[in-house]
Write a protein that binds this DNA or RNA. Structure first.
Lengths: 199, 199
DNA sequence: ATGCTGTTATGACCTCAATCACAATACCAT
DNA sequence: ATGGTATTGTGATTGAGGTCATAACAGCAT
């Protein structure tokens, strides 16, 4: 989901470069911009007191991120950190709201986007409640596959590390590694030189 | 969140009575109606193969439920079951979409609603990933308190049973009971004759 | 080749929530 | 009061995932 770049620029959006590791915005902060990723990779995470990360989403080019506060006036729900050097497109919140008011079709696209994200969290919550690592990991992989997200379009290689999968499911790396080995043995997925292929 | 009843009726919405235990709609089914609860109580749950329930929401009068498919064309994300005898208001999906198209203010209200629900699942997911029952239960209670949901407005009595809290957090009843006893001992909440008071 | 770094892999031990089993209590209807 | 049912409460046991420690490997730069 993204807004057409020309439309954004016509509304007054601007490009912004950030370096790998830069914090784009922080959980709890006040939101002034609509963000869309043009190049690079951004991770959207909650970081707790002990520094442990819960990974909510790995954002790829063309996706928008950090939308909740645009619609419900709350603070940012998580922090966005540049995983690599990135190019963002930003549009001031008031202009964004003006845009979706003027163009209901775009508003409908966003209602749909938020609904889809809600649905994903909804299902993930249900799956994680089983406390069955195999189940949880398979659900996540299946979702990524369907959305063609964090997965190579040509070779079906999963671009997430075991650590990142652990951070998205609340499991530990070791558990993810062991469980995925087991899924490989069962034939559910393929591990070659440590890389995971799912199809 | 609800749509003004007169507006609904003017669009052609109809009342429907259901008995306690009736299934209003089922997970995976195709969605034809917008639903709003007028009287009674509805539980919105995922039920797995073994019959174990994951409770996504306890719906109280004035709330709408089962909205995701209205916006993203997917199937129902969970089943709605009447907890007590209920009175619903239903509006055909096409008329609902017509309504929000004609009245952007209502559309904005729904974008906000879905966003808030997304935010809640988002935060809950993060909290549950800690695998700390005390943490999880306190987060849920805090949320219910802020939303004044499933909590008595006069006496702060939590209307959810331990079993229901277990089904919302993926914990077992015994764990919830023991953890809440502990929270009582710590003074975080009050248990009197088995009933929980949180403020 | 060599060294360096991030990721994957594996073994040993431990903890805490799940599980099972059963008792006590609250509450409603008669 | 009495009975019935739903919910809360408590003890004993156990097993799966967390934790810690350490090794092996892949990939890249020099």
């Amino acid at each position: 989901m993204m807004i057409d770049i020309d439309t954004l620029l016509a509304m007054g959006a601007t490009y912004k470069k950030v370096n790998a590791g830069d914090i784009i915005f922080q959980e709890g902060g006040y939101c002034t911009f609509y963000h869309q990723l043009a190049e690079g990779c951004v991770r959207w995470v909650n970081i707790d007191e002990e520094g442990k990360e819960f990974l909510q989403n790995m954002i790829e080019p063309g996706e928008c991120f950090g939308e909740p506060p645009l619609f419900d006036d709350g603070p940012y729900a998580a922090s966005a950190i540049a995983e690599t050097d990135c190019v963002l497109i930003r549009l001031h919140r008031s202009l964004f709201l003006q845009l979706i008011t003027e163009q209901p079709a775009i508003h409908f696209k966003f209602t749909r986007l938020v609904t889809e994200r809600f649905r994903f969290k909804f299902m993930l919550l249900k799956e994680l409640s089983h406390h069955d690592p195999e189940h949880s990991i398979q659900f996540l992989l299946q979702y990524l596959k369907e959305k063609r997200k964090n997965i190579c379009n040509k070779c079906n290689k999963v671009t997430l590390t075991r650590q990142q999968i652990a951070n998205m499911t609340g499991l530990r790396v070791e558990t993810v590694i062991r469980t995925m080995r087991h899924l490989h043995d069962k034939g559910t997925l393929l591990i070659e030189k440590g890389k995971v292929y799912y199809n």
